[in-house]
């Protein structure tokens, strides 16, 4: 049940990040057309695409954790077999959780200073931009916990 809700949320996020990527392509293309054909540039477009890019990245990391495409060094897989590898996998996930917690804790302070600055072109308060971190890291955390549960159950198919 909980897993299904999570899947649904992740699918919505993936759709949003996909649309963001499409929008970025359009903005950059229009920027070229405006500068070259109209001789008039939009000054806020670069900043908008950069911030969308950042959001696309940190909102989307959990999708990679889910599908197991995160890049890692796979020496352990060659040394250990069977139950031992299961233990190592769980250890990997626990260390990942510690890393996520470090980053998430740091982002609280970043958001605090974000109340005291605006972006140079769009004049958006910076804390709105930094909000991607608690949101993204929370999703990463939940997804990693799910990996541990799956690892313990020995269910590879989920």
């Amino acid at each position: 049940m909980f897993g299904k809700v999570l899947d649904k949320i992740q699918n919505i996020i993936n759709t949003i990040t996909g649309i963001m990527l499409f929008t970025m392509v359009c903005i950059v293309f229009v920027q070229v057309i405006m500068r070259y054909l109209m001789g008039h540039s939009i000054s806020w477009s670069e900043e908008l695409t950069r911030y969308m890019f950042v959001w696309m990245i940190y909102a989307g990391v959990n999708l990679g954790i889910k599908s197991g495409i995160q890049i890692k060094i796979d020496v352990v897989d060659m040394i250990f077999k069977g139950n031992a590898i299961k233990t190592v996998r769980i250890l990997e996930h626990i260390l990942t959780i510690v890393a996520i917690l470090f980053a998430a804790y740091g982002s609280i302070m970043l958001i605090k200073v974000g109340f005291r600055a605006t972006s140079p072109s769009l004049h958006v308060p910076m804390w709105i931009m930094y909000l991607v971190f608690p949101v993204g890291f929370l999703l990463d955390l939940v997804e990693t916990i799910r990996r541990i549960v799956i690892e313990m159950k020995g269910d590879e198919g989920v």
Partner: peptide, 22 residues
């Protein structure tokens, strides 16, 4: 250590950074 254990490289780097900052 984290990288060799097989923690994804991104999280290895973040974990090491966090530990050293603390």
């Amino acid at each position: 250590v984290c990288m060799i254990i097989g923690v994804p490289i991104s999280w290895s780097l973040i974990l090491a950074s966090g530990a050293s900052l603390l």
